[in-house]
Design a binder for these strands. Structure first.
Length: 784
RNA sequence: UGGCCCCUCGUCUAAUGGCAAGACCCCGGCCUUUGGAGCCGGUGAUCCAGGUUCGAAUCCUGGGGGGCCAACCA
């Protein structure tokens, strides 16, 4: 990961480390549920978790989140371990299992009941749903919500001992049935499930839910940074609740005293064009036989990608390329393909294979003669040494698509009367075309070769544009070639209804009559090749027992000619459409201002607030919008008036409160701020009388919010008074200009946006003390 | 009583309030015994409207658009 542009997670971890949070240690975890195979979306999570641990000298655990006995299986756990190792990562210590913590989790639950924070609910599933309310309707308390602690304790114990049927009781956290965040409406912690767990067998018949098991597992393992995907955002509040309401030693000690204290951070999951990433949907494709197992080369699973011929370093590189952020995304499959080609181009030896053979007889080449043509494994620009011999004889096979009876414009392969180069061999000219008398299909070409061009060179210097691949009819080996393409024909198959309706019928085309040069005969399964002019391929495990050769296409070569043939370049038309749509997009009608409505209601309920609003507009002359914000909340209004008491500048003070203070109040209460109106007033006064620059004021404000104090004192102590004297600034301005001659030239050439660049330089140089207006004038003068 | 998150070239990701950058894709050109690779160049973006500021992709307000949450799944 490059120094200069780190993603927001790495920035956060870096800042935690340097601030000494958790003693500066970093511990992450990758927590899959063993209920399916890992896919490339998991690879993104793996690269993130292991990558962060590596880069900050921390550790990363592998933990199986196996709290649902009905879906999980040992074979998935082993396959996941294999996949993580294959990707090139090694986890900290042994694999961990949430199921190893069942006893401890149970103990924490018992304590939670004792603390009055959980209860056994004996409602039915339907009742619980009913009582939970909806996103717009608050929930109602369950009739069992106030069950005595002893009763819940006894019931919970009996749940564990197996006395109850599935679904008869659950353990719930007692939080808030009316919480706007649905996750906080008394979430379920345990359910009864009489099922055999693949690890704990029949030892348990109650199983913890994700929201209970996950934060506690993190806390138990000493995880510092619990990284997950965006859909768990709402769960974070509950995550923190669990951590804050449990104790490391269960019964004694301080609530939430976990050390380190794990923090959850969410980032966007990966979506890839032309495939699906949901485990459920992938499982469906497998179970319905739409694909040939989890490792079908069309699957986005790591097992599938591996069999397709994608190397682990490619997947890591791909994860690097796509980055980590919070915006929903859908990554172009081309980015993956680029990474694959980039890798294979450098490591895959070139060989020749003819997919759909067309017979070519060289009429002037002696019958029975065979020559060995020397063919390098890599083109010179790759720089890898090595070569093999390719047998050449009178009867050859070339690609059917490399011949055209009536060649289109710019076609420079074989056609009647045309000459092409056979790669590493001779130049040949097509003299005659033999057709099937019945069907008229071309079955054979009659050609002559130029003996002077052995190896493909032209001693006379003539230019031959076309070079095609070939094999000897006699010496080549029969093989099967599987041409894989994207699984779906739609970029986003999940978008509309039944994703299976968009399965690409041509996602696998099998060529059974292909022929390959003999040099590959003994190569093991998993050998990568570039079949010249066709793409990258890998030898598949199928057929080895019978000695058959089977190859999977990993990815095609970039092929502008083929692209041109496929007239409708989808991406291009899509681009045009998007642009047109953008241009035609009408201004949407404005909706209701819900914030304003809330504040209007507050004023309707509080005549004094309403009076303030009126006064701000009529007496103070504030714009209605500002007055609305200032007089929408009593605390804000009082702070405003407190500021006015020390500095009577309604507009200036209002601007500072509206634009700066309101930001601080977004996730904080007014009471928690160490400053009041007086400080704001004094700060604004310092700006308005020119004592400090606006920029310095923001620094001072940030400090005020952090630690309080008197702005005047801070300014004096720090010596950050504004510098407005041109004489004092001139040297600094000149220094900035002389230090950046290139920018100066560009500015003089008309790039006036660079004015800000120079002002920024001077501001930085002076620690924000320079008067920017003066600086701006000086820069203009100097560069005029 | 709904809450929360997100919005930068076609795509993905950068950018202390101070030069909108990189990669993929696409388009030219050079080179070429792969219509590959490589090299050189190019097109192309801050969702919108107000506000704050000397200066806004970034801060404030509002609007628009997208996403997540109402499993005894994770």
């Amino acid at each position: 990961m490059s120094e200069e542009s780190r993603d927001f997670i790495r920035k956060m971890v870096a800042s935690d480390v340097s601030a000494g949070v958790n003693g500066g240690s970093v511990a992450t975890r990758f927590p899959p549920e063993p209920n399916g195979f890992l896919h490339i979306g998991h690879a993104k999570a793996i690269c993130l978790n292991f990558g962060v641990a590596e880069e900050f000298g921390g550790t990363c655990n592998l933990r199986f989140d196996d709290t649902n006995p009905t879906t999980e299986d040992e074979r998935y756990a082993r396959a996941i371990e294999d996949d993580v190792r294959w990707l090139g990562f090694d986890w900290n210590g042994p694999s961990r299992y949430a199921s190893d913590y069942f006893e401890r989790l149970y103990g924490h639950a018992v304590q939670l009941i004792k603390d009055g924070l959980a209860y056994v609910d004996s409602s039915s599933e339907a009742e619980i749903r009913e009582y939970r309310g909806t996103v717009t309707k608050p929930g109602r308390p369950s009739p069992h919500r106030d069950r005595p602690v002893e009763e819940s304790l006894a019931l919970f114990e009996r749940m564990r001992s197996g006395e109850f049927e599935d679904g008869t009781h659950v353990l719930r956290a007692r939080i808030d049935m009316a919480a706007p965040n649905m996750k906080m409406r008394d979430p379920l912690l345990y359910r009864i499930r009489h099922a055999t767990h693949y690890r704990t067998g029949d030892e348990w018949c109650i199983y913890p839910m994700y929201d209970w098991a996950h934060p506690l597992s993190d806390a138990i393992e000493g995880i510092t940074h619990s990284l997950c995907t965006l859909e768990f955002l709402d769960n974070r509040t509950l995550y923190d609740w669990v951590v804050d309401n449990t104790r490391p030693d269960i019964e004694s000690g301080e609530l939430g005293a976990w050390q380190p204290r794990p923090r959850q951070t969410e980032s966007a999951r990966l979506n890839l064009d032309y495939t699906v990433m949901s485990k459920r949907k992938l499982a469906e494709l497998v179970s319905e036989g739409r694909v040939d197992g989890w490792d079908d080369p069309r699957m986005p699973t790591l097992a599938g990608l591996r069999r397709r011929g994608v190397r682990p370093e490619v997947i890591r590189r791909f994860c690097d390329l796509i980055g980590v952020a919070k915006a929903d995304n859908r990554v172009d499959i081309g980015t993956l393909e680029h990474a694959i080609r980039d890798d294979l181009n450098r490591m895959a030896p070139r060989v020749m294979c003819v997919l759909r053979p067309l017979r070519v007889e060289i009429e002037n080449y002696p019958e029975g003669k065979t020559e060995e043509m020397e063919a390098p494994y890599f083109p010179s620009d790759v720089g890898v040494e090595g070569s093999r011999k390719v047998p050449f004889s009178r009867v050859l096979l070339i690609e059917r698509t490399d011949f055209e009876q009536d060649p289109p414009k710019d076609f420079y392969r074989l056609a009647p009367g045309r000459e092409v180069r056979l790669r590493y061999a001779y130049l040949i000219t097509c003299n005659d075309v033999v057709r099937d008398p019945e069907t008229g299909e071309v079955v054979e070409l009659r050609c002559t070769y130029d003996p002077e061009t052995r190896g493909g060179s032209t001693p006379d210097g003539r230019k031959v544009r076309g070079t095609i691949h070939w094999v000897s009819c006699e010496e080549s080996l029969p093989c099967e070639v599987r041409l894989y393409d994207r699984l779906f024909s739609e970029p986003n198959p999940e978008e509309a209804g039944d994703f299976k309706a968009y399965l690409n019928p041509a996602s696998l085309v099998t060529e059974r009559g292909s022929r390959i040069e003999p040099s590959v005969a003994e190569d093991p399964v998993g050998t990568h090749y570039q079949f010249e002019r066709l793409g990258f391929f890998i030898r598949d495990s199928d057929g080895v027992e019978e000695g058959r050769l089977v190859y999977n296409r990993t990815v095609e070569l970039k092929d502008p000619w083929a692209r041109r043939q496929v007239q409708d370049d989808l991406r291009l038309t899509e681009q045009v459409i998007v642009k047109v749509e953008k241009a035609n997009k009408e201004e949407a009608p404005a909706g209701e201002d819900t914030g304003r409505r809330a504040r209007d209601e507050a004023r309707a309920a509080d005549p004094e607030l309403a009076a303030r609003f009126e006064r701000y507009v009529s007496e103070l002359g504030l714009p209605e919008e500002d007055a609305d914000l200032l007089a929408g909340d009593v605390a804000v209004a009082e702070l405003f008036e407190g500021a006015l008491a020390v500095h009577d500048s309604p507009r200036g003070v209002a601007n500072w409160i509206v634009n700066e203070l309101l930001r601080e109040l977004k996730d904080k209460e007014m009471e928690s701020l160490p400053i009041g109106g007086k400080e704001i007033g004094r700060l604004v006064a310092l700006v308005e009388d020119g004592t400090i620059s606006g920029r310095t004021a923001k620094d001072v404000f940030a400090r005020l919010v952090r630690e309080g104090g008197d702005p005047r004192e801070i300014v004096r102590a720090e010596g950050v008074e504004q510098i407005s004297d041109p004489a004092e600034l001139r040297a600094i301005v000149e220094g900035a200009i002389d230090g950046h001659p290139e920018q100066a030239a560009r500015y003089r050439a008309g790039q006036s946006g660079l004015l800000g660049f120079f002002v920024g330089q001077v501001m930085g140089e002076t620690g924000g003390r320079a008067n920017p207006e003066v600086v701006q004038r000086l820069v203009r003068e100097k560069l005029a």
